[in-house]
Each structure stands twice: as C-alpha cells, then as structure tokens.
Amino acid sequence: MLGLRTKPSDSKSTKSDVMKQARRQVLDAICDFLLDNDLAITPDNLLAAHGAFAGGNPGLARQIAARQQSGARVEQDWLDEVTANQATERKDVAIERLIGKLEQNLDAFTKSSKAAHRASSDYSTKLEAHVVELEQVEDTGQIITGLADLAKAMAERTRQVEQEMRKSEEEAKSLRRHLDRAKRDAEVDHLTGLPNRRAFEALLDKHYREAQAEVDSLSVAFCDIDHFKKVNDTHGHDAGDRVIKLIGEALARISNDNCHVARHGGEEFVMLFRGLTTQEAKQRLDEAREEMAARKLINRRTDEPIGQITFSGGVANVFGYENPRAALKAADEALYKAKQGGRNQVHLA
C-alpha cells in the first residue's frame, strides 16, 4: 500500500520539472529567434524576444509570426522600428495617466480656490461693515480708533487676497482650457486626422456599456494594409504615408455616428460597428476593400505607378466574447487568417 502512495515531494518535483521545461522552451525560442535571424545579442533584442516568446508582448509575437510566414527574415531595422512604435505607445499611456492626475489636482485646486474666494469675499464684506460701525461711534477714544485703523488694514489686505484668489481662478481656467486642448490633440492621429488607439479604446468602452444596456449589436474589426513594407521600400516613406491617409479616408467614408474608425498604429486600423450584425459589418468593410482594390495609384512625386493597394480585415462580435478586449484579440486573429489566406479579404472571427 505504501508503494502506491504519491509523496508530496514527488508532486512538488513534478511541478518544478514542468516549470523548468517551460522556461527551457522559452530560452530555446529566444535563442533560435536571435540566431536564425542573425540578430545581435543586445539587451534590447533580448527584451523584445522575451516579450514575444514569453507572452508579455503578443502584438510583437503576431507581427514576427506574420513576417516569418511571408518568408522574410526579421532584420534589425524592422525590429527596431516595431519596438520603437510600441515604446511610443507605452509613453503615450504614461502621459495619459499624468494628464489624469493633473486633471484631478486641478479640479481640487479649482474647488478649494473658489471656496477660499467666497470665504474671503464674505469676510471682507463683514469686516468693512464693522469698520463703518466703529467710525460711527461718538467719542470713540484712542483704543476704538486704533481698532478701526486695524480693521481697515485687515479689510484692505482681505481685498488683496480676494484679488489674488480671483487671479488664481482665472489661471486655473486657462490651464483647464490648455489641458482640454492637449487631451484632444493627444487623441488624434496627426497623419490621418482620425482618432488614435487611445481614443478608440475609450469609444469602445462607451459603446459597449450602451449597447449592452440597450441589447444592441456591436462588432469590432481590424484592418491592415497588404504589403505595406514594399510600398515604403520601393517608393519611400512619404508615399507610404499617403497610402495610409488614403486607406484612412476610404474607411472614414463608411463611418457615421454608429460606425467609427481609428488608426491603431503603423499601417493598421481598427473599426467599431454599432447596430449592425457581424455579417453586415463584414459586408460594409468588404465594400470599402473592393472600392480601394479597384484603384490604381501613382506616386505623384516620381510619376511611377504604385499599382493596386489592398487591405485585409478581421471582424468579431463583441458580445460573443468575455469582454471587448477578448473580441479585439479575436478580430486580430481573424485578420491574421485573412493574411494567411492570400490577403485582400475580410474574415469573420
């Protein structure tokens, strides 16, 4: 009977072995990635590889997989560009948090400033009334006269404080206006004029709550320009920027109060469809894709033909998943399948 029992130490040993095996697999994946792509063993490359293969950076993992699927190697310049864009996004998130804290402090200051202004104004009015009463007393004598003079001085100082508080209120209002403008600027992609990723996420949360309460349909979609690197490499980044703007305009044309598009980053866009079934959302996105694919573009700077520009897409039903973030991930995976399936197509998750 004793021989049939599993000792606690055996269980712990098995668990430890599994963890070691998992760590070894991550290390092997990192080593193979760096060596197969002839990448230098630098802190930045190790950090990027760890994020991709240890699960900390699924977006980078997907981009690496897509690049390898196309048969291309992961060059250092490409990896630096991708990780730099992601670092910028993390910086934007940090700035957003700082702006949020500044807003909270500004609101608190404005509230206390208004309260102090009201208090000083009320105190000044009452103090001036007491001065008038003291001056009207006959035969006041030296003590009363001194008190009246002191009260006058206090009243004058109170008026000065009131003016300073009023000035502080105006400065707080000015800061609020500048802060609101900065927030609006921070939510716009300056190349396309579309909302950026941060603005879209706030919009998604808003529509998710409303659609859930109203039992309304809600879908999300990811779109990615096909062979975009080839455009940049052949025609330059200026032409690439114009292509991004053109795709943004094409997607914006199908937008309305219940259909929103944003630039998610790089050559990728994200869309939100409210009040449409997932199939209807796919159809609308397909129409924009077909319209774009029918065009033949020319590089205006060199008069060289760019040719056909297409995009691929993935659409997911938000309420078919645990939360909006899971739906976005499903749409992203559907986009990847569209890429694998030959590009220039839209897949449902």
Rank of each mutant, 00 (worst) to 15 (best):
M1P: 06
L2F: 10
L4C: 07
L4T: 13
R5N: 11
K7C: 04
S9T: 10
D10R: 13
S13Y: 04
K15G: 04
S16Q: 11
V18A: 13
V18F: 03
A29Y: 00
L34Q: 03
L34E: 02
L46Y: 03
H50S: 11
N57Q: 09
N57K: 05
G59C: 02
A61Q: 13
Q68H: 02
G71M: 12
R73D: 13
V74R: 07
V74D: 02
Q76E: 09
Q76T: 04
E81I: 11
E81Y: 07
E81G: 03
E81M: 10
V82A: 13
T88V: 09
E89N: 06
E89Y: 09
R90L: 14
K91P: 00
V93L: 07
E96R: 10
I99Y: 07
K101A: 14
L102W: 03
E103G: 09
N105M: 14
D107S: 02
K111T: 08
S113V: 05
S113N: 14
A115D: 12
A116T: 10
A116P: 00
S120E: 12
S121E: 10
S121A: 14
T125E: 15
T125Y: 09
K126D: 08
K126R: 14
A129D: 09
H130P: 01
E135Q: 14
V137H: 11
E138S: 14
G141I: 08
L147C: 15
L150H: 14
M154D: 08
E156W: 03
R159C: 11
M165K: 06
K167S: 15
E170A: 10
S174Y: 06
S174A: 13
L175N: 04
L175T: 15
R176L: 10
R177F: 02
R181M: 12
R184K: 15
V188I: 13
L194I: 02
P195I: 10
A199H: 03
A202R: 15
L203Y: 06
L203T: 11
L203G: 04
K206V: 05
K206D: 14
H207T: 04
R209E: 08
A211V: 02
A213L: 12
V215H: 09
S219M: 02
S219Y: 00
V220A: 02
V220W: 01
I225D: 00
K230A: 14
D233Q: 07
R242S: 10
R242E: 14
I244R: 00
K245D: 03
K245E: 12
E249C: 04
L251M: 07
R253G: 13
I254Q: 13
S255E: 05
C259V: 15
G266Q: 01
Q279N: 08
L285G: 02
E287R: 05
E287A: 11
E290R: 10
M292W: 03
A293T: 02
L297P: 04
R301V: 12
G307E: 06
F311R: 08
F311T: 04
G320E: 03
Y321T: 03
Y321M: 01
E322D: 07
R325A: 15
L328V: 01
D332L: 01
A334C: 05
L335N: 00
L335W: 01
R343W: 09
Q345I: 05
